[in-house]
Write a protein that binds this DNA or RNA. Structure first.
Length: 529
DNA sequence: TTCCGACAGTGGGGTCGCAAT
DNA sequence: ATTGCGACCCCACTATCGGAA
């Protein structure tokens, strides 16, 4: 399969807004790849690569290439000639470079690859490397396209992808099989192979979450405490333990304390879903930044600065809290309703479980939510007891509720938008009043803006413009905006030493002047540091 | 015919490790 | 030692398509 054919398909996908047309264009290329002239095992390879590229990603998880690697590229080739397998091999080689000189070698290889690509092929490769293909189709459209090409139900493909944890292998299996349905059915839960985690939607409050999950109000719901850590999926087969993150990244070597906890459980074969975080002696959660630092640190206590690192790791242990179980000693539980899975969870994972309340009473749930916040937890997740573990899809089975704080801040500058926001001023810089009569920047946001808001603020900030460096437009600090956010965190980037977490625009306030905006002292008080 | 679920896009702050400077 | 970059952790929100109601 030629890269040029993939590029042409990607262009066709980008050219239409219809998802059905996108799906059809991708399915067409998948069929051609599956019936190509390449020998059998190469066809499987071709398919996996084509699936990755048309879903907007490379097959390599990490290549060492990013946005900066695309700055100085050679002129494009006149004629196409690259095959997808050659391209995949080139990226695999780049991913393998390490040590001194690796950056140079990577740069040289990048030049060679891009120099062999035509203009359209270069555009595709740039999109894949930067992760911004912007063709209006990613993995979900790909799953539907695989189903169309193989003439099987999309739900069956989606389920196989969830079990396999990846789309490429499922696509190549189903498209090359004599019996596609049987091929899909062969992807089942396997202890030791990560599955796509089930995700949650969000609701503004408990009442809304209950309305979403139990509109009739009579069904009992599960209300879990939501912990502010990192998602973990744990597989155990005897003494073999695997810990992966939400994106199925293997972090086992970084979290020996979690491995220990799991090995000490009585059940020998397990797949558990949960959250890991740092807590103090009283069980009070540490700030998310500490959990993040601990979980991002590779194998602790070796090499440079070993003692300090080992100490840090000893103090900052991550504690796992499990809220779901997908397999226990030969029994697959994925299709069982949550109420049954919870019964098993309490048997196999106690006492390392998330605190929960089962109730049909929204007021009781609201009190439980308030209690969780008093404990210093992030919020709650409300779940229907009847639903199976529907991984990979955001479905309405789980709904998270978190508290929301607000501040009235002043816009200090605004950045140009990109993609569908090209031509608009988009990302705003936010400041709080400071005692010196100026403003202290606390972060930026582009969230919460409708197209109408974008049009309005583009006009408004042009009126207030004092400088435009081509990317950032600095404005007179006069426009007040009401900002919602999840909390404050320590920052080395911003002058006040703190920054907003998940800031978004609620509304512009024309009833307030900048002199009435919130002060940095107020913000500090909120932060508590 | 209208409604709403699912998806893609548009970026946010922080953390680490690594190579180059 | 410092800096820049890549890769991941946590994400919220809006517009849009197309199937459900």
């Amino acid at each position: 399969m030629l890269l040029a054919e993939v590029a042409a398909t990607s262009d066709a996908v980008a050219a239409t807004r219809s998802r059905l047309a996108k799906r059809a264009a991708i399915a067409d290329l998948l069929r051609r790849t599956a019936t190509g002239t390449a020998p059998g095992h190469d066809r499987a390879d071709d398919l996996e690569i084509v699936v990755a590229y048309l879903a907007g990603s490379l097959r390599q998880r990490r290549t060492g290439l990013g946005y900066a690697a695309l700055r100085d590229l050679p002129p494009p080739a006149d004629e196409p000639g690259l095959t997808v397998r050659e391209v995949d091999a080139a990226f695999a080689a780049m991913a393998a470079f390490e040590g001194p000189g690796s950056a140079q070698a990577r740069s040289t290889a990048t030049g060679e690859l891009f120099g062999s690509a035509t203009e359209r092929e270069q555009a595709l490769l740039r999109g894949l490397v930067s992760g911004e293909l912007r063709q209006g189709a990613l993995d979900s459209v790909m799953v539907d396209a695989v189903a169309e090409a193989a003439e099987v139900p999309a739900d069956a493909v989606r389920r196989a992808v969830m079990m396999r944890g990846a789309t490429g292998p499922v696509a190549s299996a189903v498209l090359l099989a004599d019996d596609p349905i049987a091929a899909l059915a062969s992807f089942t839960l396997e202890v030791g192979r990560p599955v796509r985690p089930m995700l949650a939607q969000s609701a503004p409050d408990i009442a809304a979450a209950f309305e979403k999950l139990a509109p009739d109000g009579d069904a009992g719901l599960c209300v879990d405490v939501k912990l502010d850590g990192i998602r973990i999926q744990v597989h155990r087969d005897g003494d073999d333990v695997l810990v992966v993150t939400r994106s199925l990244d293997d972090i086992t070597a970084r979290v020996p304390e979690i491995v220990e906890v799991v090995r000490a459980l009585p059940t020998r074969r397990l797949v558990l879903d949960g959250e890991a975080l740092a807590v103090d002696e009283d069980g009070v959660p540490r700030p998310f930044q500490e959990t993040a630092a601990r979980s991002a640190t590779r194998e602790s206590g070796r090499g440079r600065g070993a003692p300090a690192e080992a100490e840090l790791a000893e103090q900052l242990r991550l504690t796992p809290f499990f809220f779901d179980v997908l397999h226990a000693d030969g029994r697959d539980l994925v299709d069982d309703p949550l109420r049954d899975r919870l019964a098993v969870l309490d048997e196999v994972a106690a006492p390392h479980t998330v605190r929960r309340l089962v109730t049909a009473d929204a007021d009781a749930a609201a009190e439980f939510f308030a209690g969780a916040l008093r404990e210093g937890q992030e919020g709650v997740v409300v779940k229907t007891l009847d639903a199976p573990y529907a991984a990979g899809r955001r479905g309405a089975g789980w709904v998270k509720v978190k508290p929301r704080q607000t501040l009235d801040l002043v816009v200090l500058a605004v950045e140009r938008g990109s993609g569908r926001r090209e031509g608009w001023l988009s990302n705003i810089h936010l400041g709080a009043r400071n005692p010196q009569g100026g403003f202290t920047m606390l972060g930026k946001t582009f969230k919460g803006m409708t197209d109408e808001t974008l049009a309005w603020q583009t006009r408004r900030f042009r009126e207030l413009e004092v400088e435009d460096d081509g990317w950032v437009v600095t404005v007179r600090p006069e426009q007040v905006v009401e900002i919602a956010f999840d909390g404050l965190q320590r920052s080395t980037r911003y002058p006040g030493g703190l920054a907003l977490r998940f800031a978004r625009v609620l509304r512009y306030r024309d009833d307030k002047s900048a002199a009435e905006a919130d002060t940095i002292d107020t913000v500090r008080l909120l932060a508590g540091f």
